[in-house]
Amino acid sequence: MEHLQAYRAAGGGKHRANKPIEPRARNRRLLIAAAVLFVAAAINSEGKAQSSPFAPLAGTWSGSGTVTLDDGSTERIRCRAKYAPIGPTMEMSLTCASDAYKFNLAASVKAEGSAIAGSWSEASRNISGSLQGRGAGGNFEVVASAAGFNANIALRTSGNKQTVTMRADSQFRGANISMSR
Rank of each mutant, 00 (worst) to 15 (best):
S93G: 15
T66V: 14
S119M: 08
I21M: 10
S93W: 01
S121W: 06
R134K: 09
A115M: 04
R156H: 09
S124R: 10
W120V: 02
M179Y: 03
E75K: 10
E141K: 13
S52D: 09
T95L: 09
E112A: 12
L30R: 14
W120P: 02
V142C: 04
W120M: 09
A42L: 12
G113V: 04
K161Q: 10
I153N: 05
R78F: 05
Q132T: 14
E75P: 03
L155W: 00
V143R: 12
Q162M: 14
Q132P: 01
H3D: 13
S51N: 10
G174F: 05
R76S: 14
N160F: 01
I153M: 08
A81Y: 01
R156M: 10
S130G: 12
T157E: 07
R80H: 00
F140I: 12
Q132E: 15
F103N: 08
G118T: 11
N152G: 15
M90E: 11
A58H: 02
G87H: 02
A144G: 05
L105K: 08
M179I: 15
H15C: 03
I21C: 07
A6L: 13
A41M: 04
E75Q: 15
A100E: 12
A42R: 06
G138R: 07
A147V: 12
S145W: 00
V39K: 00
G65R: 11
A146G: 11
A106D: 11
A9N: 13
G72Q: 05
D71M: 00
A81T: 07
K110D: 03
Q132I: 02
G12C: 02
P56I: 05
A151K: 01
I177H: 06
P85K: 06
A41P: 02
A58D: 03
G159E: 05
S170R: 07
A49I: 00
M92D: 09
A111Y: 08
M166A: 08
P56E: 02
S93Q: 12
S145N: 10
S64Q: 12
Y7L: 10
P88G: 12
A147Y: 06
W120R: 04
R80C: 04
R16T: 07
S108C: 04
A111W: 02
H3T: 10
A49W: 02
R24Q: 14
Y7D: 13
S128A: 13
R156T: 12
V36Y: 00
L57W: 01
Q50R: 13
N152S: 15
W61C: 07
V164Q: 03
P56G: 03
K14I: 08
R78V: 11
T163N: 09
S158L: 10
S45Q: 11
P23H: 01
I21Q: 07
A144W: 01
N104E: 15
A146W: 02
A84I: 02
A35H: 02
I153R: 09
